[in-house]
Design a protein around this nucleic acid. Sequence first.
DNA 1: TTCCAGGAGAGAG
DNA 2: CTCTCTCATGGA
Length: 293
Amino acid sequence: MKIIINNITDFNLKYTLESGQSFRWNLVDDAYFGVVEEQIIKIQQNNDTLIIHSSYDKDKDSFKSYLHHYLDLHRDLANILNAVNIDAYIAQAIDMFWGMRLLNQELWETIASFILSQNNNIARIRNIIRTISMRYGQKLEYQGYVDYTFPNPKTISDAGVDAIFDCGTGYRASYLWNAAYNVDSGKLSLDTLKQMEYVDAKIELMKLEGIGEKVADCICLFSLGHLQALPIDVWIKRIFEQVYLRKRATPQQIRDFAKNYFGEFVGYAQQYLFHYAQNQPDWDNAEHLALTL
DNA sequence: TTCCAGGAGAGAG
DNA sequence: CTCTCTCATGGA
């Protein structure tokens, strides 16, 4: 199936797919290939046009609508970025990565991915997810690109914790297995989670072993569409301590300040700051401090 | 080779 | 409540 989305505004495919919120996209020549739910999707951006090919072969209109939502195109990004563009520092980040959007990804895979993300780096997270998918997912092939679906909770639950450990997950194996078991057994309802408000969804997610505030916020932000969520990882912590607060701060202090300072779209502000910091080649000696307010 | 990563849990103070 | 230690692993 081929879908063209014309006249898109304020969207940058590269920044969106390479900003550490999804671990499943690969650049092949000028196109991004990835697995979304049960199909391979190929996306190319040509200015204000998205050219999308997919192994999906059912209803075209609903799939187009799904992609629109997945890529967050239903939001007015310019309005959001203007709202959080309130100082010289974030202005740099916004200017450099204009068009980067927060994805709305499939919930179970997002839960699993960010359980695996703790105390881990992006390159290795991608490798672990690929290994789990190769071993326990369903093989897909489209236009010569081969990849695998991410296994559902039942498959992971049935595979057992040792099998998950053997995929290179380290000590996180029991966390992932436990989450899969809870979802598969109905103890945690994904549908219910999708209906909840931000705070309730976060609390519900944190009942799972291995999900603390940071991972819960990632799931809320990258899957559930809660833009108030503020994942505080080592990068975000560094930015707020060194640029904004200019002192050591607990996650709660950072959260209180950031929500008051950036407002309801703090999650979007966070994504720009995170990606900007990650692309500073030498943070410790960078001139980011001089740019401050 | 050593350091570190989209952290969380347990225990101590 | 806040610190500290530990947990596997491999990319850089």
